[in-house]
């Protein structure tokens, strides 16, 4: 129990530090970086939650976040909907998409690599749709997101979004920690460990997989909208597989799957890495890829697990090469 509470304390301290930075920072750039930290941490929590509950690689949280940001902003721009209504519509569309993909896959018994590929196809469909419907979505160039807080002025508006971002990740962290201790959380982990065994005990695993995806999509969609508002801009590249999902996996692997404090620290680190390598241009992707590769190798060798005293999420089994 001591380790668990120290993890919660560390999470609370980190979230408070972000909140305090949002309150007292006078730099527009710093406030935007806080918004980015909130985005990456929230998406990483979504990735971690789905991986823990289903043991599956969900590669479409960037698309889920992007759907939310695009739907809400485009409804406000093209139909003139009130920001609150447009925002709710964006979140609903994303949560529906994420839940539908997960539930359909679970009901059809699609898992492992097939599930990863299915979510990859969803992510690319989003990108192709945004690039193709350029009259509506403004294509590759993206567009300026209408700011409902524009009246407050640049710095105050950025501060408000940074505060909302910090509040979002505090709420998602708290919810994840509560979920871990609840009956639902226990069932989710059981489904992640062995869905068949859970089914034999009379529980429908599809419900828990869909719930995990719905919660993950909720985090990602709220984070997506705040990220777009914080930057004042939305473009397909901001929500691409390389920019979002790959980095979220990097955060989860480095921070430790299931470690709230680890994800917060790694999320901050990855955002700093992203900002520090921005000048590299296209080569930045190579840095992300190599970092992800190094983190998987270190995780596999146990170096990260030893460093962060984490327990591997998956069970190590003897070689099953025969089942390939």
């Amino acid at each position: 129990m001591r380790t668990r509470w120290s993890g919660e304390a560390a999470s609370a301290v980190l979230a408070s530090a972000l909140l305090a930075s949002s309150l007292f920072s006078e730099s527009l750039y710093a406030l935007r970086v806080i918004g980015s930290v909130a985005f990456y941490v929230a998406v990483s929590q979504a990735v971690g939650l789905v991986f823990a509950a289903t043991g599956q690689v969900f590669l479409a949280f960037g698309a889920i976040a992007g759907t939310s940001a695009y739907v809400s902003s485009l409804l406000a721009i093209h139909l003139g909907l009130h920001h609150a209504v447009a925002s709710a519509a964006g979140v609903s569309a994303s949560v529906l998409l994420g839940t539908a993909v997960s539930a359909a896959a679970a009901a059809r018994g699609i898992s492992g690599t097939h599930f990863g590929v299915l979510t990859l196809l969803v992510a690319l469909s989003f990108e192709v749709l945004v690039l193709g419907m350029r009259e509506v979505t403004f294509g590759e160039a993206g567009f300026e997101v209408p700011d409902p807080l524009a009246g407050l002025g640049g710095l105050a508006s950025a501060r408000a979004y940074a505060l909302m971002g910090a509040a979002l990740l505090s709420a998602s962290t708290a919810l994840n920690l509560l979920l871990l201790r609840s009956r639902v959380g226990v069932m989710m982990r059981a489904v992640g460990e062995d869905a068949e065994l859970v089914r034999f005990s009379g529980v429908n695993p599809v419900r828990y997989k869909a719930l995990a995806a719905a919660l993950g999509s909720l985090y990602a969609s709220a984070a997506g909208q705040l990220y777009a508002h914080s930057n004042g801009f939305a473009s397909p590249s901001m929500f691409s597989l390389a920019e979002v999902d790959a980095l979220a996996y990097l955060v989860c692997i480095v921070g430790g799957l299931g470690s709230a404090a680890g994800v917060l620290i790694a999320g901050t680190g990855v955002t700093v890495l992203k900002e520090a390598t921005r000048a590299l241009g296209e080569l930045q992707l190579a840095v992300f890829g190599l970092s992800l590769l190094a983190s998987v190798i270190a995780w596999k060798s146990g170096a990260l697990r030893r460093t962060f005293r984490l327990k591997a999420s998956g069970r190590r089994r003897p070689s099953t090469s025969s089942s390939v």
């Binding site: 597989l241 190579a286 992300f288 890829g289 190599l290 099953t320």
Partner: peptide
């Protein structure tokens, strides 16, 4: 290859995605 099927395929996807990003960037 020493991992179980699910873990191997999941981590295999992540490793090859990482490699794809690195190569794409270069």
């Amino acid at each position: 290859q020493t991992l179980g099927d699910e873990e191997r395929s999941a981590l295999g996807l992540v490793v090859t995605l990482a490699l794809a990003l690195a190569l794409h960037g270069v």
